[in-house]
Design a protein around this nucleic acid. Structure first.
Lengths: 202, 202
DNA sequence: GTCTATAAATTGATAGAC
DNA sequence: GTCTATCAATTTATAGAC
């Protein structure tokens, strides 16, 4: 907490994040984490009592980044379409900076849905306000009638899947051209919101 | 191959598929597979020499289901928009019947991209023909100019993500209402292609 | 082909010196 | 706080009887 790179506890946390994001809970190795942190295995247990506890610490850290800050968007002063554009831009950049995050979260929740969701998603996510906002736009005749759930699902799908599936998609569709894939992702930051808007505008 | 349910080799393969899909390569246990198959651990090694070999057999089986049969769509007699509708319907049903498949594939490829993609995706996928078809539609002035890669990415994203993310999305967005989520997925079989078409039609 | 018993290797966790 | 050495449990893999 105090020093920048001297703090062993934090060094461990970030090393664990690397290892867990790449290999998942069951594939990660305490030895691998210790190696990344440049310390000994025993120290891991000194700071975090068990692998499970360390995993939970990483998961919590990671969730706090990943959860879409819908509230921010909702409460902004922008008009609706600009809110969508803003969300795509912010959330897209976050995803591009943390490409392994979505797949990690989905995989771990798949393994243990109830307890992980209950523990980490019970607060902090409230789609109701977003739904209400969409409904107001519809009632005002500004966009087509659409199920708000579907709208949010479409946005998330279009933004997350190309990141989560990159190791496969880049190789199969883009002939493993990394640069081209990066450019495509960057382009989508603006294309996806227009794609969405195009489909709901009147 | 011969008998229906007597064939031990197949029984093992399907038991392994269950276990691997749920827990991934590193989370799966040979004991768990043996239990599902109702046989002994040793038999697994008799038919498949190692866990790795068994995993590869499952992965191959699973890939053969998962790869979109783009050729079928391309070579159909339908007009372009109907091809999209047809693809969404067929592929969507396949996904709904095998909901754990996408996340499993993505996670395993993430763990070991080069060798898995090279081994299992080298043949059988050829997006070029699809790209050419899209280009013809654009040249003929029937749809807006769009990058064919983006189009295919959008289709896959909209169809796969709600399935892959279900354990999280159903709980967070749908208050864990299973029936409602099922209905939403079913509705998307028709909504997604219209959403796509809406955004590219002139 | 199928089983029981066991080997061999991996790995999470702890004890104890410094 | 950090290390070395080691334990204990899990898990893949094999040997050998039937």
């Amino acid at each position: 907490m105090k020093e920048i790179d001297q703090n062993t506890e934090l060094k461990i946390l970030y090393a664990a994040q690397e290892e867990f994001l790449l290999k998942g809970m069951s594939g990660a190795r305490m030895q691998g984490i210790a190696d990344r942190a440049g310390i000994n295995k025993a120290l891991l247990h000194y700071y975090y009592r068990s692998k499970e506890k360390l995993f939970m610490a990483v998961f919590k850290l990671v969730i706090s980044l990943f959860i879409p800050r819908l509230e921010k968007i909702i409460n902004s002063e922008d008009v609706f379409f600009d809110k969508i554009r803003q969300f795509a831009k912010n959330y897209g950049h976050l995803l591009m900076k943390n490409p392994f995050l979505p797949l990690f979260i989905l995989h771990e929740i798949n393994r243990n849905p109830d307890s992980l969701v209950k523990e980490f998603f019970s607060r902090g996510i409230n789609p109701e306000a977003f739904f209400a906002m969409v409904q107001r736009e519809i009632d005002a005749g500004k966009i087509k009638a659409i199920d708000p759930c579907q709208l949010i699902l479409n946005m998330l799908s279009l933004m997350i899947f190309p990141i989560a599936g990159r190791p496969l998609l880049q190789r199969v569709i883009y002939k493993n051209n990394k640069k081209e894939y990066d450019e495509m992702l960057k382009k989508r930051l603006e294309d996806v919101p227009e794609f969405i808007i195009n489909s709901i505008k009147i």
